[in-house]
């Protein structure tokens, strides 16, 4: 009992003071990446207050000249200069990647929870939920996007209030596609977690007079959703990356921007290496964010909270 009863606040503080070199590097890199990203967006939205829209914060030629004077980096001066040159387009594409991912994930969550609950506790609805999940997990995501975009041409039916929020209405089609598909995957992760909640918890809830639905809401979900966080983070990370499929229905997100530049400059390796780094930064941010969420909602004495 002794170690386990330490108040969570003390343990949390202990973890924060653990400033290893790796942690410092990661936090610095993250701060630089997000600082640059947000600055790029603001510059664009405010009509080029710092540098003209579409221009990098530092001129590529300046970077190139500076690096060329450094003996070890001279050979990389030109590619790094080029990367600086395309950075505004990368930032611009990353905005849509982030929006599509987070909005789809968020809306998908509210579809996934009922899907998972009916899957575990429903009778006939369990089959409906199973059918939905298997259909959306069992067919290629790209094909689903094609059906929504080319087959049903849903971009033409975006309601007035939503129309015009994004540069192209097809962004909404992508969000719809990722929401429906992601919900199926999220539901599976949540289902697994709900099943790991002990039967005795439900018995206890019913025994104090909570109905079945109330027991699920007040007892099972608060626990199950916590247990789901680590595996659910997978879906978050996957979605960041497979949001790139939206490029195939002409959504100008990160992959689309990179592909456009590559097609006109033929510098595929360099461009996709830089794009890959941007995805990596987004994914690391997501996984660190979810780690923080997990620690934040940890039940004292249990799971992630233990021994940290």
């Amino acid at each position: 009992m002794a170690g386990a009863t330490q108040p969570a606040a003390i343990r949390r503080r202990a973890a924060e003071s653990d400033l290893s070199v790796g942690r410092v590097l990661l936090v610095t890199a993250g701060a630089l990446f997000w600082g640059w990203l947000v600055a790029s967006w603001l510059n664009r939205w405010l009509g080029g207050v710092v540098v003209p829209v579409g221009e990098p914060f530092v001129r590529p030629a300046t970077v190139e000249t500076a690096l060329a004077t450094l003996p070890g980096l001279a050979a990389y001066a030109e590619p790094i200069g080029f990367a600086v040159g395309i950075s505004p387009e990368i930032a611009r594409g990353a905005w849509l990647t982030i929006v599509i991912t987070t909005v789809s994930l968020f809306i998908g969550f509210f579809i996934a929870v009922p899907l998972a609950v009916t899957r575990v506790y429903g009778r006939y609805s369990a089959y409906l939920s199973l059918g939905y999940t298997e259909l959306l997990r069992g067919t290629p995501l790209l094909a689903q996007l094609f059906v929504l975009h080319f087959g049903l041409n849903l971009g033409a039916y975006v309601p007035g209030a939503l129309s015009g929020v994004f540069p192209r209405n097809v962004v909404w089609v992508a969000i719809l596609g990722f929401t429906l598909n992601g919900a199926a995957y999220q539901a599976e992760y949540i289902r697994g977690a709900l099943e790991s909640v002990e039967e005795g918890q439900i018995t206890a809830g019913r025994a104090i007079g909570l109905s079945r639905v109330e027991t699920i809401y007040y007892v099972v979900l608060p626990q199950g959703l916590r247990y789901a966080i680590p595996s659910w983070t997978n879906e978050f990370i996957y979605l960041i990356k497979y949001s790139s499929l939206a490029a195939f229905i002409t959504v100008p997100e990160l992959y689309y921007r990179a592909d456009q530049i590559a097609a006109s400059t033929f510098r595929y390796t360099l461009i996709f290496a830089v794009t890959g780094l941007a995805y990596l930064a987004l994914v690391l941010t997501a996984s660190k964010l979810m780690e923080a969420v997990e620690a934040r909602v940890a039940i004292p004495g249990l799971g992630a909270d233990r021994g940290r």
């Binding site: 002990e198 918890q201 018995t203 206890a204 809830g205 025994a207 007892v219 626990q223 039940i299």
Partner: peptide, 11 residues
């Protein structure tokens, strides 16, 4: 009702 396994709500 009081249970053998306590069954306290863990969260």
């Amino acid at each position: 009702m009081v249970f053998q396994g306590f069954n306290l709500f863990a969260h």
